[in-house]
């Protein structure tokens, strides 16, 4: 099977639409964020969610885990979290007189790494190694992680006291950095009504989510996304965008080749989500901000001038010529 036929595309898209609709039962508004998380899932990659507290980052991940009958684990990152708390460890069992390996919470399908920047670098590294290799070495034995495996890490951009910002090389491991913004007034009103009406406490209603698919279906969807066709000109366009970040004066460090790879992988998922079996320049452009914003470093001059990564990337996207006839 080299390309997707129409029937497969329709099937995959309808499944994705069903997932999307299910997630939107509890995530009011934030449709772009929901789509980007699904793109991350389709690309079999990890995403970093950034937003101030109270925007539903954790809720989104919980809801996503509920939609498929996979395993879900959550790690609340704290300054005293050790690598063994994430990946597991061996302890001596007095009864059997042997070392017993206890697997950590990383052995799951969907892992929520809450406030990842609160743990020190060594703990972050342990998780990021698992993210890259899809396996964990415990007592010299390589243990593969279950499939599908996806890490959804969250971080809070405002509280920087006592945090350990992820280094650029580690940020690069995330396919997308999704920025969650405040909902608009109408969405916020609908959200408040949904949570407070006929509801005790502050339950956000994850129970309302039904399980639609299993891990095998997720793998099929990921395979379908991998088969989405990318035309040579569209691929060139993605590479041109990434290369432009290296030549732009506003960035002191541009995106590496992994940026081009991420852009095309994410665009495949975006195309499938739109019900297409081929990628268009629009898909590349749509996904460029989340795929590249954490791979570039803004220059101090541009920062002083009040520019942000997103603003510079947006103007760069307007200036890179799109494929023409």
């Amino acid at each position: 099977m080299n390309t997707l036929n129409e029937e497969q595309t329709t099937k995959a898209t309808s499944l994705l639409n069903a997932l999307r609709a299910e997630l939107r039962k509890v995530i009011i508004g934030q449709s772009a964020v929901v789509d980007e998380v699904l793109i991350g899932l389709l690309a079999e990659a990890h995403v970093l969610l950034e937003g101030v507290p109270g925007l539903g980052k954790t809720l989104l991940v919980k809801a996503l885990a509920k939609t498929f009958s996979g395993q879900f684990a959550r790690i609340q990152f704290t300054p005293d979290l050790m690598p063994s708390d994430v990946i597991g460890h061996s302890i001596f069992d007095l009864a059997s007189n042997t070392f017993v390996t206890r697997r950590g919470p990383v052995f799951t399908n969907l892992l929520l790494a809450d406030e990842i920047n609160r743990a020190p670098a060594k703990t972050q590294s342990a998780l990021l190694e698992a993210m890259q290799e899809y396996q964990v070495t415990l007592e010299g034995t390589a243990c593969p992680l279950p499939k599908p495996f996806m890490v959804l890490a969250t971080q809070n951009p405002i509280e920087q006291e006592g945090t350990y910002p992820l280094p650029e090389a580690q940020l690069d491991r995330f396919l997308l950095k999704i920025r969650i913004d405040y909902p608009d007034a109408r969405e916020e009103a609908a959200l408040t009504r949904s949570v407070t009406e006929r509801n005790t406490g502050a339950d956000l209603g994850v129970d309302r989510i039904s399980t639609l698919i299993g891990p095998k279906h997720v793998e099929s969807l990921q395979m379908a996304a991998a088969l989405v066709d990318v035309d040579e000109r569209v691929l060139d366009y993605a590479v041109k965008i990434v290369r432009a970040t290296r030549e732009n004066n506003g960035f002191s460090i541009g995106a590496g080749p992994r940026g081009s790879i991420a852009l095309v992988r994410a665009a495949r998922g975006a195309a499938l989500l739109q019900g297409r079996a081929f990628v268009t320049p629009d898909d590349i452009k749509r996904i460029a901000l989340p795929a590249l914003r954490h791979r570039v470093t803004i220059s101090p001059d541009a920062e002083i001038e009040g520019f942000t990564n997103d603003a510079l990337l947006t103007s760069l996207l307007d200036s890179v010529p799109a494929p023409r006839l």
Partner: peptide, 9 residues
């Protein structure tokens, strides 16, 4: 139209 406008734009 801008230089970087795609079909969607």
């Amino acid at each position: 139209f801008a230089e970087g406008d795609t079909e969607g734009n």
